[in-house]
C-alpha cells in the first residue's frame, strides 16, 4: 500500500459513508453535514487527481457557500425531523434495490464502454498537478463565451432569488 492508495480508500469510504448518512439521517441538518463530508472528501480526491484549483473551488463554492446556504435555510425554516409518509409504495419498496442496480449498471457501463476500455486500467497521464495558469488560459480563451454566459446566468439567478424573496407590499 502506498500513500495515494491509502488516501484514495479513506476518502472514498468517507464519501460513501456520507452519501449513506444523507439517505438514512432523519434530521435535515445531519443530511446536510453528511453532504459536506462527501464534498470535502471529493475535494481531497481532486487533489489526488492533480486538480488543485478545482479542489479549492469545490470547497469554497460547494462546501463554503452552497451548503452553508442549505444549513441556513434549514435553520431559518426550523425544519424538524422528516416525517415518514407512505403515499408512494413504489418508492418505498423499489427505490433502494433499483438504485443499487442502477449504480452497479452505471459503473459496469462506464468501465466497459468504448472510452472506458481504453482507459479503465490505465494510470492516466502524469503525476504532476495542473497549473492554474493553464486552466485559466483555457477558461478565458477557448471557453470565453460559455464563461460569459454563466456570468449572465448568475446575474439572472441573483435577480430571481431577490424577486422570490421580496415581500409583497
Amino acid at each position: 500500500m502506498t500513500l495515494p492508495f491509502i488516501m484514495f480508500f479513506v476518502c472514498a469510504a468517507l464519501a460513501v459513508i456520507g452519501a449513506l448518512t444523507l439517505i438514512l439521517a432523519r434530521e435535515p441538518i445531519h443530511s446536510a453535514l453528511a453532504l459536506v463530508l462527501v464534498m470535502v472528501s471529493l475535494a481531497v480526491l481532486y487533489l489526488l487527481l492533480g486538480a488543485e484549483f478545482i479542489a479549492a473551488v469545490q470547497i469554497i463554492v460547494y462546501a463554503g457557500a452552497i451548503m452553508v446556504l442549505f444549513v441556513f435555510v434549514i435553520m431559518l425554516l426550523n425544519a424538524g425531523v422528516e416525517e415518514r409518509t407512505d403515499y408512494s409504495k413504489l418508492a418505498k419498496f423499489a427505490g433502494l434495490p433499483l438504485g443499487i442496480f442502477l449504480s452497479l449498471a452505471l459503473a459496469y457501463w462506464m468501465l466497459e464502454s468504448f472510452i472506458g476500455k481504453q482507459i479503465a486500467n490505465g494510470l492516466g497521464g502524469t503525476n504532476a498537478s495542473v497549473s492554474t495558469r493553464e486552466l485559466s488560459a483555457q477558461l478565458f480563451q477557448k471557453y470565453l463565451f460559455p464563461f460569459e454566459a454563466t456570468s449572465i446566468l448568475i446575474l439572472i439567478a441573483i435577480l430571481g432569488a431577490l424577486v422570490l424573496a421580496k415581500k409583497d407590499e
Binding site: T2, P4, M110, G116, I119, A120, N127
Partner: peptide
C-alpha cells in the same frame, strides 16, 4: 510513487 487507476474513481 504509484498512482491510483482511473477506473477506481469511475
Amino acid at each position: 510513487m504509484s498512482i491510483v487507476p482511473i477506473s477506481y474513481y469511475l
